[in-house]
Every structure is written in C-alpha cells, then in structure tokens.
Design a protein around this nucleic acid. Structure first.
Length: 701
DNA sequence: GCTCAGGCTCTTTTT
DNA sequence: GAGCCTGAGC
C-alpha cells in the first residue's frame, strides 16, 4: 500500500514532528537511524504509562518515513488489539508527516500481529516445504485438553488407582516443556514435583499426543511457535525467512518465552534492526512459560551489547497514585531500578477501603461508580479489576440490579460454550476430514451414538474421500434418519460446495434440533448461535474465520456481537491479565486480600509470589486519577466439600504492608443500614419528608 | 454399545 | 459445582 509511495519521499518537514516526544522517547525513536539497517539491537525499558505505544509507533513511523518498506517490517505484539492500535497510530503519524490526504488509503503493516498469528501465517505459506498439510486446523486450549484426555485414556493412564495427573495438568506440563525448552525432568522437578515420578510415562503420553496431532492435521498453540522455531533452525529455510524482514520489533518483551526469544534471535542473528520493548516490572505470564530473563538478559545476548533506553516519565497517573504504585513495586526482589515520575496535577491519594464482606464490596463499588458518574466521569472511563474471573460474580449481579451496563474481559469465553464448540466442530470437520477430535464430537451429537460409533465414523472420514467413505460405512438402522441428515450437511459444507458465510447458516440449521433436544436453555443458546453467524459474516472465508476465531477469539462477553451497543456508555470489568496495556480514569481493584492477591494457588515459590506482586502493580498502574483497593474482611468459602460453606477472615494483601500505608488514604465503608433494623421508632425522629421522597423517585440509585 | 447414576477430585491467569 | 471415572441396566 502506502509503502511504495514512502520510498524516497523523505522530507525536511518531517523533522519537527518528533518534538512532541520527551528526550528519552526521542532517543529511542531516533536510535540507529543514521544506519540504513536501523542500527544494532535496541532495548527500550518502558515503565507503565510512559508512552510506550507512542514511542513504538513513532519509531516505526520514523523508519517508514525514512524509506523503510512496510512489507518488510515484522511487528509482534501481545494481542491482536494491541497490533491493530499500533498499526492505526503509525498510519496516522505517517499520513500527517507526509501530508497525505485521507483519500490515499490507510497504511497497512502486513506482518503485524501476535507471535501465534504470524507463526500460523508463515506455516501455511511454507507448509508443503516442511511436511505439513497447508489446511491444518488450529486447536484452541480446550480442544487441546480434550485431545490430551483422549490420548491419556487410550494409553491406559486414566485408571483411577494410578492417580495419574489430570488431562489439564498433562497439557500444561507439555505446554510448559515446549515453551520453556527445558528438559522434562528438570521442569517436573522444579515446577511439578508431585509428578516427577511420572517422567517416562509422560514422555510416552506426549509422544502419542504429538502423533495424534500430526495424524489429524492439527496444530495446537504451542506448535505454531515450535514449528516456526524449527523452521528457523534450518539454515536454508531460516535464512530465507529472516531475509524477508529488515526490521523486527517486539512489544511486551517481558512476557515472551524461550521459544519466542529463540525465534527473534534466529530471525536476525546479528541483532541489526531488532527493537524490543517491555517492562520487567509488568511480567505476569510465567504460567505460560514467559521468562523475565528474556528482557533482563537481552542486551548481553549480543556482542557488543544492545543499546538500552529507559522511559521513566509517566504521563498516565497522578503523582499520588504513582507514589502508591512505586511503593508497592519498590518491595520487589529483583528488577531494573527505576522510579516513575509524573508532573500531572495532584489528586487525592490512592484509597484502601475496608468493607465487611464481598456483598458489601459489590455494593460499595457499584455505588462509588455511580457517584463518580454523577460528577461527570462516564462509565467507560472507569474499570473494575480482579485477579480471578469469578471474583466479579457478586458485583455483576449488583450492576445488573442497578442497571449499570458493563462489558467483561477475561475468564470464560464465548467459544468455550458447548453449543458454540459443537457448531465450530462441524465446520472444522468439514474443513479438515482428518480432524478426528471434531468428528467424534459432532458424531456424538446424534442420539444413540457414543464413543465407539463416533470413533468408527471419524476413522472412516479420515480415510481418503470423506463423503464416499461415510456413505459406505455400516450404521445401525435405528440411526438412519439422523445419519442421513449428518451426511447431507457434510456434503453441503464440503470444500468447494460451501459458499461462505452461507455455510454457517446451514451448519446451524442442522444443529438446531440437537440443541433443542440436549439443552433446557436452548433459547438462550440459540441467541449465541445467531451472534456466531454474525461474526462469521465478518470474515472472508471459512478457513480464515476458523483460524481467527481460535487465535483472536472475541475478548469480551458481548463484544463484537452487539454492534448497536457500541455507542452506549458501559463500565469495564476485567481480569488484571486482560487489562494489560489499558488505562482508565478510575480503577477499583477487588479483593486486595491474601488468598486472592496473591492467589493462594500461587504462593508456592518466591518467584510465584513476586509475580503476584507485579500483578497488583499492573492493576494499580492502570489508574489515571482515581484508584481504590477494596479489602473485604470476611470471606465466604464455598465448594469446600467436607464441611460445606463457611466464612474466614481475610488479611489485607501482604503486598501492602503497614509500612506502605502513608501512601494511601484509609477508610472503612458500611452499607446503608437496611430498613428493617431501623424500624424501631427512635426518640426525636424527624417527620417523614414526603417532598424529599418524591424528588428522590427521579434519581437513579 | 449407549446412557445414566453415584462417588470421587479439584478449583487462576491466556495466545 | 463441575468434571471424571466406573459400573449397572437397557
């Protein structure tokens, strides 16, 4: 697109647009520009709110303005949302600098996306050269767990007396091993000591899991990186892929794992044209094998060492909020020493609010959100963050009760609902006849078909011409009608026959009778299917729809689906992980107590606890003008099988010890006394103010 | 070979 | 409260 026009259009007028940057940012943007290759490796340490995206966008724009070819720039971000935003910002800057009018068309960076997304693209392109089927299907996490479960069962590890790790544990061990590139025994001893004795059994299990994936022409998330890394290790192919790019930029480098850093290093072994950006204090993805060592050791990886620029001026938060953030991260054990500073206008200090229990917490938060809204702060400028998706359950009820619209990020996804997976499985099976996992899932929807029949059906489908093979298959007479229906829809969906997006309508139409039969709440689920159909229409082909739904699933409940709601004002609820890179004027953090932050699932090792500390830091640094940490004193514990529900007293999070309290304003909040307990007449009660009551009836409460 | 009931375990964060 | 495994009954 615009890249062609960019070559040679370098102008003098473009110099002063860098004046908007502060000296450190400018240094990062201009680094190595005297060199046609963009200079040696560069590490940008960008603290929270220091204009990281801005700096990266300017550096990219600067490269393009000075003649770099947009098609030869590889930009990897953590999420698709971040990729889109960067692309948009770069386009705007370039357009302004070169005085292109809006009609010139938007600049596109064709190689801009997540590691997994870029990996998938390269693998499809090089599939035939590396022995893959170019129409491979990508397995999402839940499907990977299911496949691991099947293999686990086939290998005979599911007999209970042997107490073998669960399918989910098996997959997470496998995934950790792949992404960290650690030998299995080392990984087990370090992170899964209770599984250490299963080393050789796990070796066998994983070998079978890999064989199954290959037989079914499917890749899981880890494979997208693993096969890519393997391609890079081949001298010829690796060189060829590396030579396609002049510049490699990686955002959120603190959250990359060993496999990803190997890929980056292999793309450009000399480090020329490599820029990585990140903040070690915000590393929160070690459960996905991300290692903060990548960023801590990046500079020394090269000879001579990579240049390093640190951004410490914070543009986001008020000095009061920042001092609380700095205090919390100041207690961390390791990291680049840096203190963020801000000269924004003063605000009241960050708050710690004690409430009675989680019910009070929900009331307090809902109420304070409405109060701020009354002062003119729109709901969309406010967010509520929490460690675990379920922590917001009570608040969601309270918000619904008060008619406060919200969107929730993180946690259970749309795609994980059984009825969505059923329909997607049908499409995936039609797309990839070898996909036994999808095939067995679909076949078992037919009443009277269980695992045995389903696996016969899947086996037949994988052998050559799927439709002919299924026609030949012997199926019990009692299954005749549903079996005919299934083959009919498969024929209509088969490659070539299916027009997109009409095909999804056919798939849903076939599925509806099964939906009605299986679920009591079929009507609600049917609405989800309508949403799915709408999303499908936004993608050009079936293959792209299936790939993108897996790699970039709709992030929020209600996201994408409800276009008419887009203009509405709504509150954001989000897990802290999903809040990365975002900011709001007011942020409330729920359950700032030990057991939630840090999660009691993550207090085993010092490294885990340190990561939980960074998690709280990430949550706090999202706030611009208002921050409150909510501390419920009493907790109801459900799901403790033996004694039933009980409640426990919680301590304020260990990450905010008494010594840090001077950085906060402390308060306690009590719910308004319920009417019943105040109904005893008190002396000197004021007369009932009916006028007040009438006025109040117009207030939103 | 399919389905359903009953007893067991585990419970986070996500591309 | 859900998911997993087993075993009884059809």
């Amino acid at each position: 697109m615009a890249s062609n026009e960019l070559g040679g259009t370098q102008t003098q007028a473009s110099r002063d647009y860098l004046d908007e940057l502060n000296p450190e940012q400018r240094c990062a943007v201009e680094f190595g520009m005297e060199d046609a290759t963009g200079g040696g490796p560069l590490l940008i340490i960008a603290g929270a709110g220091t204009g990281k995206t801005q700096t990266l966008a300017y550096r990219l724009a600067h490269l393009l303005v000075r003649g770099a070819d947009a098609r030869r720039v590889l930009l990897m971000t953590f999420s698709r949302r971040a990729a889109r935003e960067l692309e948009h910002r770069v386009g705007k800057i370039v357009q302004q600098v070169l005085n292109l009018d809006a009609g010139t068309g938007h600049l596109t960076l064709p190689w801009c996306g997540t590691f997994h997304g870029i990996g998938a693209r390269l693998l499809r392109e090089y599939a035939t050269r590396v022995g893959l089927d170019a129409s491979f299907t990508i397995l999402d996490r839940a499907d990977s767990v299911d496949l691991m479960g099947i293999v686990r069962y086939q290998q005979g590890y599911s007999e209970t007396e042997r107490r073998f790790p669960s399918k989910a544990s098996c997959l997470s061990i496998y995934s950790r091993a792949v992404n960290s590139r650690e030998p299995l025994q080392v990984l087990l001893d370090g992170a899964y000591p209770w599984c250490s004795t299963w080393k050789s059994a796990l070796d066998e299990l994983f070998a079978a899991y890999v064989a199954q994936k290959q037989a079914q022409h499917i890749l899981d998330y880890d494979d997208l990186l693993l096969y890519w890394a393997h391609m890079m290790e081949d001298p010829e192919l690796g060189g060829e892929i590396g030579a396609r790019f002049d510049h490699v930029l990686v955002d959120e480098y603190q959250d990359t794992n060993a496999l990803q850093s190997d890929i980056v290093h292999a793309l450009r072994p000399s480090g020329h044209g490599v820029t990585v950006v990140g903040d070690d204090a915000q590393s929160i993805y070690s459960f996905r094998s991300a290692t903060v060592r990548n960023i801590l050791d990046f500079a020394q990886h090269y000879q001579p060492a990579a240049a390093r620029v640190s951004l410490a001026r914070n543009y986001r938060s008020s000095p009061q909020i920042l001092s609380a953030c700095n205090a919390v991260i100041g207690l961390a054990k390791e990291g680049f020493e840096k203190r963020l500073w801000s000269d924004r206008a003063a605000t009241p200090p960050a708050e710690i609010v004690e409430v009675g229990d989680e019910t009070d917490q929900a009331q307090y938060v809902a109420r304070s959100i409405l109060e701020r809204r009354e002062t003119g702060m729109a709901l969309r400028n406010q967010a509520v963050l929490f460690r675990t998706s379920s922590h917001s359950a009570l608040l969601e009820i309270e918000l619904a009760r008060r008619d406060i619209p919200f969107v929730k990020y993180g946690g259970l996804r749309f795609l994980e609902a059984a009825h969505i997976k059923d329909v997607l499985s049908l499409l995936r099976w039609a797309d990839n006849p070898h996909h036994g996992l999808a095939a067995t899932r679909v076949a078992q929807l037919l009443p009277g078909v269980g695992p045995a029949t389903a696996s016969r059906i899947a086996g037949a489908a994988a052998s050559g011409d799927m439709l002919a093979a299924l026609d030949r298959l012997e199926i019990a007479e009692s299954l005749r009608a549903p079996w005919d229906e299934l083959r009919r829809v498969l024929r209509r969906l088969s490659k070539g026959a299916a027009r997109w997006p009409l095909a999804i309508g056919e798939a849903i139409e076939w599925y509806l009778p099964h939906l009605e039969r299986i679920y009591d709440d079929a009507r609600v689920r049917r609405i989800d299917l309508e949403d799915l159909a709408r999303m499908a229409a936004l993608h050009g082909t079936r293959e792209r729809f299936l790939t993108e739904m897996t790699l970039d699933p709709p992030e929020a409940v209600g996201d994408e689906a409800g276009a008419p709601y887009k203009d509405d004002d709504f509150l954001v609820l989000s897990t802290i992980h999903s809040a990365k890179g975002r900011e709001w004027r007011a942020v409330s953090v729920l359950n700032v107590v030990d057991g939630c932050i840090p999660s009691d699932m993550a207090t085993g090792t010092i490294a885990e606890i340190e990561e939980e500390r960074r998690l709280l830091y990430v949550a706090m640094t999202r706030a611009r003008d208002h921050l409150s940490l909510v501390v419920p004193r009493r907790f109801y514990i459900h799901q403790q099988s033996d004694k039933g529900d009980r409640h426990v007293y919680a301590q304020r999070s260990r990450f905010v010890p008494d010594a840090l309290l001077p950085h906060f304003a402390l308060s306690a909040w009590l719910p308004t006394v319920p009417l019943a307990s105040s109904s005893v007449p008190k002396p000197n009660v004021a007369p009932i103010d009916l006028a007040e009551k009438v006025r109040r009836s117009w207030e939103r409460n």
